[in-house]
Design a protein around this nucleic acid. Structure first.
Lengths: 227, 227
DNA sequence: ATGTTGCATGTTGTTGACAATCTGGAAAAT
DNA sequence: ATTTTCCAGATTGTCAACAACATGCAACAT
């Protein structure tokens, strides 16, 4: 009885939860999102099977899942391709992202604990420091985590699930175009406004600050694109 | 050259575009959304393969896709189950639905053509007629199509794609609980407010009317549930 | 009587083989 | 020279066989 309640070791838990197909899915997802596999690249079954050390069956299953995730496009009898995200799709995605982040912001403004206020302030301070050091990489990492934190802390699992899909689409768009990072100063100012609104418990201002920030990010995307 | 530009017959086009796996996916999706397969039901590979007249391979592939769509839950070595949607998930979904329909409403208020205005008015008239006949089934059908029309006409494909997933989740929730239809009169009044806002080109009012309507629908869901 | 072990059965996960399809290059026709 | 046809090779789609796993029941031990 007691042994039943002992947490299984990590490797046993992993074996229990994952088939070769689901592991293949995770591997290829990581390859696509990291940019190792580029939009438009063709993924051959035999090639991926050999690369991942499995047979073609699990690779085929993984392809079906990846297609439904929006990461690849299956063309019958011709192969599987990493999906390309157009600027039009990116724009549509930003419009949706704005209202979802607005919902996250206003929800969190109403429910954030003192501890979460502290976390937001810590993010802000870290981003200020990264900005002063002109460390683009560090700032970008903090930026992603800051947004994720707000969505997570809103407590709406469905919102988070959809938001993750949206970030994935925008990541693929960036992989398509090799878009470079954002303007630090403007982004930092906008983050500051967001944190202030949430920490002062103002849902209307929090929502608007999130929306304005996403729209500003979208405009910066276009500015980079038109270089 | 001319034969190349001739539209292929429907069956040829279908064969070109669909593998057995994708057809199996569509079949099972329809079975689940129609309620023929209930939340919690177990889908055996051999059983579905026999039922659909294919081998297990395409069924397995279809299961991977269905899982990613959120329609089923795969438990390794144990089987595949139609996913059950809890009321908590339904509530989260409604919160997201409200802001997405709000976006659709405000977007359409800014861009609707006269023709689309006419379509909205036609929907309203048809719903009034169905309500006066107390035809719940007809009203429900019009209701779904009215909402879909607004989202489609907003012109944002990403919004539509996400919205479709949300409607699917709420459909599965309804299949879980056998929730019955909504209150006709309130719904009709709210639809009327939406149509007026869109047709008068008022994005702020259109957005708010959509949000209020979805929230009202959510409250009615709870009222039915607490019976 | 209760708890544990072992085994048979049914099902899932994976692999390999075969059929079907597509593509590119060579040969034939114009 | 250009266009059309044919074919070989590579790849995808499906099927069937085998290995692995989970579950339920009977037998055994306490």
């Amino acid at each position: 009885m007691e042994t039943r309640n002992t947490p299984p070791s990590t490797s046993i838990a992993m074996m229990r939860a994952n088939s070769l197909a689901s592991l293949a899915q995770s591997e290829m997802e990581a390859l696509i999102l990291s940019g190792a596999l580029k939009p438009g690249d063709r993924l051959g079954e035999a090639e991926m099977a050999e690369r991942l050390g499995v047979s073609r069956g699990p690779v085929r299953e993984a392809f079906r899942a990846l297609e439904e995730q929006g990461l690849v496009r299956i063309e019958k009898n011709r192969g599987v391709f990493v999906r390309q995200v157009t600027i039009a799709e990116a724009d549509e995605t930003y419009a949706v992202r704005a209202v979802l982040e607005g919902l996250a912001g206003q929800t969190l403004a109403l429910r954030a604990s003192q501890h979460e206020h502290g976390t937001l302030q810590t993010f802000l301070a870290s981003m200020k420091e990264a900005a002063s050091k002109r460390s683009m990489k560090e700032y970008a990492d903090l930026n992603v985590r800051f947004h994720q934190f707000i969505v997570d802390a809103s407590g709406n699992g469905k919102l988070k699930e959809i938001y993750d899909g949206i970030i994935m689409t925008l990541t693929m768009y960036r992989n398509t175009t090799l878009v470079r990072g954002n303007s630090l100063e403007v982004s930092l100012m906008e983050h500051s406004r967001i944190v202030n609104a949430i920490c002062s418990g103002d849902p209307v201002e929090a929502r608007q600050a999130m929306i304005d920030h996403v729209e500003s990010s979208q405009r910066r995307m276009h500015a980079t694109q038109d270089d």
